[in-house]
Design a protein around this nucleic acid. Structure first.
Lengths: 115, 115
DNA sequence: ATTTTATATTAGAATATTCTAATATTCTAA
DNA sequence: TTAGAATATTAGAATATTCTAATATAAAAT
């Protein structure tokens, strides 16, 4: 992964890196929602929700269509967002390795034929 | 997703949310590496690498075994890390929805029987 | 024992993110 | 055409993150 790509991807990750934004994304994964819907769901102000939606829009994670004065938001890269949310909700037990396991791996890179 | 869970998950995401840390994780996905290996690969100081490794350790994403004065780092939740890296490297074209699509979806929530 | 090698920690300045308060925009309905 | 409803934007204070410089620790080699 080169420097430029790493920066791009980190920017994308940052869009996910806030509790309110994760909750907004999780809610949008269930269906289209307007800001009023989210206000009922989240313990934060309308202004703050709009600010977080702006971050999500700039990251290309959500889009919206107008519905009168309201805006109906939806996931614009559903597979990416749902994939990340699924990984976060899955259980990933921490593995510990011993010196011996590491030594053996040095001849057997991860993803190689011995896996 | 409730508030506590959202906070926990956002903390985890933050560990990924830095270009240098993404590169460290990508490198560890290829196999065990010590800090010296990473110094050769990354355009940052040893101190900075150690600081980022400390963030990754606190998030439970990496572990290490001693090898003399060196520390060999490895992914302690490889499926989580590799899953996130795979999602980030995959192409996820942005979809735009029309008013009509949204209207239709209102009776057909995402993930429901009509998908 | 001392030096060298490998890595970690700490303090603080620089920078970026987040939230609050005030205000603006845009559409609809009266 | 004005008022109300829904949402967005802006400025700035509060907070968190990151980097640099200096220093510490721990094992190995001399």
């Amino acid at each position: 992964m080169d420097t430029d790509v790493a920066h791009e991807r980190a920017e994308l990750v940052k869009a996910f890196a806030h509790p309110t934004r994760l909750r907004i994304l999780a809610e949008l994964a269930r269906g289209t929602r307007c800001v009023t819907d989210m206000e009922e769901l989240l313990p934060v102000t309308q202004v703050n929700i709009s600010q977080h939606l702006s971050v999500l829009r700039n990251a290309g994670l959500v889009g919206f269509v107008r519905d009168g004065a309201a805006r109906c938001y939806y996931l614009s890269r559903p597979e990416l967002v749902e994939g990340v949310l699924a990984l976060l909700s899955a259980d990933h037990p921490v593995v510990r390795k011993t010196r011996e396991q590491i030594d053996r791996e040095k001849n057997r890179p991860r993803g190689g034929p011995h896996r």
